[in-house]
């Protein structure tokens, strides 16, 4: 088992984020993304090498008390946790530390959403009601007791597995969504709470699946751990090596 996932090259492109009133498309530069989320095994190797990220040593500021609670102990997964399943119950700070240890980083919301529009054949499948329906069906189901390995999931057109249908994932700037999470169109956002707050709200509420992801991110704090929230890592491609596939 590898200590960190294989990365796939995501070819950059133009993308219109869901939550912005100026419909100016944004450019997502090419980058590398882990093809699968970080597994229990990989995270265990990380905490062995970085004792301060073991359950007994973390500060509540950086990881709440449910951090890695599904593991048997500090350094044991136990019989009920598959080493190949994605690690969950990890905070943003812990995810970020893992990424940094492997000279990677977390993907931004824009990067994640850019890739998440894809299915097996299309870079952007979000206009297909069937695609959105499959996601919503998953969102409506309770969490399974045992998470499957992401490698059992089909690859999307970028070669990425299990962005949908397995777990939710941390992003580097999850706190930048500017969605309060209370109202669907977010028109109730108190503008005094935000400088230029009016510039950031939904353009496409028909994409309900994406809306739920934004709302979920807005409900998180950096030390939260959730039993269906894990992460995968990304890496910036240095400008001179953009044409090469691997780092």
């Amino acid at each position: 088992m590898e200590s960190t996932a294989e990365m796939a090259l995501i070819k950059g492109g133009v993308y219109t984020p869901l939550y912005t009133t100026d419909k100016t498309p944004r450019i997502v530069s090419s980058f590398l993304l882990d093809s699968t989320p970080v597994t229990n095994h990989q995270f265990l190797e990380f905490v062995k090498a970085n004792p301060k990220w073991q359950r007994k040593n973390t500060l509540p500021l950086f990881a709440d008390k449910n951090y890695l609670k599904h593991w048997l102990s500090n350094l044991e997964l136990g019989p009920n946790v598959s080493p190949d399943a994605p690690v969950v119950n990890v905070s943003w700070f812990a995810a970020r530390a893992f990424a940094s240890f492997h000279h990677k980083r977390l993907p931004s919301v824009d990067e994640w959403e850019y890739v998440a529009r894809a299915d097996a054949h299309r870079i952007d499948a979000t206009s297909d009601p069937e695609f959105t329906k499959i996601l919503l069906d998953w969102y409506g189901r309770p969490n399974p007791k045992h998470l499957k390995s992401a490698t059992t999931f089909p690859q999307n057109i970028h070669g990425i597995q299990a962005l949908h249908g397995l777990i939710w994932e941390w992003t580097s700037d999850f706190n930048n969504a500017m969605v309060t999470g209370e109202s669907r169109g977010d028109s109730g956002l108190d503008r005094n709470l935000f400088c230029a707050g009016g510039a950031v709200s939904a353009t496409d509420v028909t994409n309900y699946a994406a809306f739920m992801r934004y709302a979920f991110r807005a409900s998180l704090k950096g030390n939260y751990t959730v039993e269906n929230l894990g992460f995968r890592c990304a890496r910036t491609i240095p400008p001179s090596t953009e044409s090469k596939k691997q780092s």
């Binding site: 706190n175 400088c195 230029a196």
Partner: peptide
């Protein structure tokens, strides 16, 4: 910003949207 619970986002080259806190 994450520890303080402040949201911010770069809007363009010169401006940011951010929480007033």
């Amino acid at each position: 910003a994450v520890l303080l619970g402040i949201q911010f986002r770069k809007l363009n080259e010169t401006d940011f949207a951010h929480s007033n806190l």
